[in-house]
């Protein structure tokens, strides 16, 4: 199946998560994400998208199965896994009393890169679309979109094989959304494996290589975006949801 230069970066094998209260968040989930690939998990609230990301980050332990990054299980060697992961949360919150540069500096060092110069920080900030005059502003004065860009800059600077995005486009204006997709494609071209969760059908279709529709911890559908190209993703989504008797929700949390 795999092409020669492709290798599996992110992998879920029979991933299952049951909470103490009996709720099944993930039910035997399987997927593989290779380098140069964007994988979008599409689903309503409580579908299990964030739980999947939390397991990769070892913020949760799977009940059974494995979440592997470059072949290493996240709950067995979390620190090795985290070296290969960057993470951008839905609502990026950084230290409000630090400037953008100070935040970048801290998180980059935390990510294990101690030798990054100020110019490089500025370069990355410019690349994600933050103008030079805000680089030395404190984070508490930043809007949501600006914080998002900072978060992406941190992920870029960490320079990992995989990036996890949790609802990256919620709350972004159309222009910022467009810029984000372009950035995502750049990252893909650099060889990264990207896992993103989203409610946004159109952005998912625009950017992703593989799209999975998720409900109650299961993939209802997993297809290459290219094969979906002609079909109407939205009607597919509604269709799958309707089959399972659930009202689809598309608003942000």
């Amino acid at each position: 199946m795999l092409e020669n230069n492709k290798q599996v970066i992110l992998e879920a094998i029979n991933l299952t998560k049951k909470y103490d209260d009996g709720v099944v968040a993930l039910d035997n989930l399987n997927f593989q994400i290779c380098n140069n690939e964007i994988f979008a998990m599409l689903g309503g609230n409580g579908a299990g998208k964030t739980t999947t990301i939390n397991i990769f980050l070892n913020l949760l332990e799977p009940t059974s199965g494995d979440a592997k990054v470059c072949g290493v299980s996240s709950h067995i060697e979390p620190l090795t896994v985290k070296q290969n992961l960057a993470y951008v949360s839905e609502n990026v919150m950084l230290y409000p009393n630090f400037t953008a540069l100070q935040n970048l500096d801290f998180f980059t060092q935390l990510g294990g890169r101690l030798d990054v110069s100020k110019d490089e920080y500025r370069e990355v900030l410019m690349r994600v679309g933050l103008a030079e005059q805000v680089h030395n502003k404190k984070l508490k004065s930043f809007s949501k979109g600006m914080r998002q860009k900072c978060g992406i800059a941190i992920a870029i600077l960490k320079d990992t094989k995989a990036i996890l995005f949790d609802e990256p486009t919620s709350g972004l204006d159309p222009k910022a959304g467009y810029e984000f997709i372009r950035l995502l494609n750049d990252l893909k071209d650099e060889g990264k494996a990207v896992l993103m969760s989203t409610h946004d059908i159109f952005r998912a279709k625009e950017a992703a290589d593989t799209i999975a529709i998720m409900n109650e911890g299961k993939f209802l559908m997993k297809e290459k975006a290219s094969t979906l190209f002609d079909k109407d993703l939205e009607s597919l989504y509604m269709q799958y949801m309707a089959v399972h008797g659930l009202k689809p929700t598309t608003e942000g949390v």
């Binding site: 980050l57 913020l59 070296q83 993470y87 949360s89 990026v92 230290y95 935390l110 996890l164």
Partner: peptide, 14 residues
């Protein structure tokens, strides 16, 4: 509550 904790812990620090 402020948010950075998750980001910090997504790095390889014990």
């Amino acid at each position: 509550e402020k948010g950075p904790l998750k980001l910090c812990l997504s790095n390889a620090i014990p």
